[in-house]
Simulated assay, not measured.
Amino acid sequence: MTPEQTAAALPYPALAKAVEALLSDPSVSVPPRTVMPMPGGGNLFVMPATDARVAITKLISFVADNPSRRLPTIQGDIVVFDAVTGQRRALLDGPTVTARRTAAVSLLTAQKLAPRTDGPLLIVGAGVQGRSHLEAFAAGLGVREVWVHSRSAASADALVAHAQHLGLRARRVEDADAALAHCPLVLSTTSAQQVALRGTPRDDAFIAAVGAFTPRMVEWAPQVCRDLLARGTVVVDTRDADHEAGDLLQAGIDVSKLPTLGDVIASPRAVRGPVFFKSCGWAGWDLAAARLISESP
């Protein structure tokens, strides 16, 4: 499938529901992903997963400085197989699935845990994930106002223009830390090569921290993470975050004691704000996307 076909087959609200359904399916099996360093400084990811009907392998590369080469940060494919016969059923565009399923997971978590969903929404990082999260939160939460911050004014302006094209009120902001005081919804979708946020989120904030997915990557200052744990609720996407959640690990937090999104869905609980959701990625989310496409008429 082309990137456009892949995107069309994965509407954000339906994909969020597919992620929720996957988390309650006992037939799902997801082994730890393999991350292999490449000589140029990037990483090669191999991520298999299966349930009773569908099996996948995701094979992607991640090269943080590729934008300087005018190349995508993430490149690769997802191969979908029939889990019973082993026949190949589809070849999906890896970057498109990665962008959409990551945003759908953040959307689902916000639907379950956000103290308030009326915005404004602050997006820090105006790349592919910033765009997919903008689209997901507009489609699934009904967000109508977006503030955008990026180290690149041109990138921020492009995302603002996209938001306005979707019918949203949108503007670029120069100081992301100051904007935290005004935005109950916050998405950090940077390249996570350095701390991007040092400010104090609101008590009624929902934060999805998406950019950092290895121990060395970071978006949020350690003292902010420790403060959020002390006065709010911190949730990780899966137990793989125990050794991947760079923001939390660099803050000295014992990630293994934190609840996962699956825990929250299995046993709904009252949450104390602010809510900080640490997303690291998981092949199960790609399996949910493959299942949704497989079930489409």
Rank of each mutant, 00 (worst) to 15 (best):
P184T: 06
V224R: 09
L229W: 06
S256T: 09
A179P: 03
S256M: 08
L249W: 05
R131Y: 06
P215E: 13
D227P: 03
L159V: 11
L197F: 04
R172N: 07
G167H: 05
T214H: 05
A208C: 15
G199T: 07
A126F: 10
P120H: 02
A245F: 01
K257T: 12
A212H: 01
P215W: 07
A176W: 01
L166G: 00
L185E: 01
G140H: 02
T214N: 08
A153D: 13
C183G: 04
W147L: 14
R231H: 15
R202Q: 11
T117K: 15
D204S: 06
D203Y: 10
R231S: 10
P120C: 03
F137V: 03
V146Y: 02
G142A: 09
A241K: 01
P222G: 05
L229F: 10
H133D: 09
L229G: 02
A156W: 05
H162A: 14
Q223R: 14
G119N: 02
D157F: 08
D254N: 13
S150A: 14
V195D: 00
A251D: 10
A170E: 02
Q223S: 15
D203A: 14
V236G: 03
E219H: 07
F213T: 08
S256E: 14
A179N: 11
T214R: 11
A176P: 09
E174G: 05
V235P: 01
S256I: 02
G246W: 00
P222D: 10
A205F: 08
L122N: 04
G167W: 03
V224K: 06
A245N: 04
L229E: 12
H243S: 13
S150V: 06
L168D: 00
T214V: 10
I207K: 03
A196R: 10
K257H: 14
H165L: 15
V186W: 03
V224Q: 12
D242H: 11
Q193I: 10
A156F: 14
R198P: 02
C183L: 05
G167V: 05
V218N: 10
V124M: 12
G252F: 03
G119S: 03
A136F: 07
V173T: 08
A230P: 06
V186R: 07
A192E: 01
A205G: 09
D242L: 05
G127S: 09
L134C: 02
V255L: 08
A139K: 00
P120M: 01
C183P: 06
L122R: 06
R171S: 13
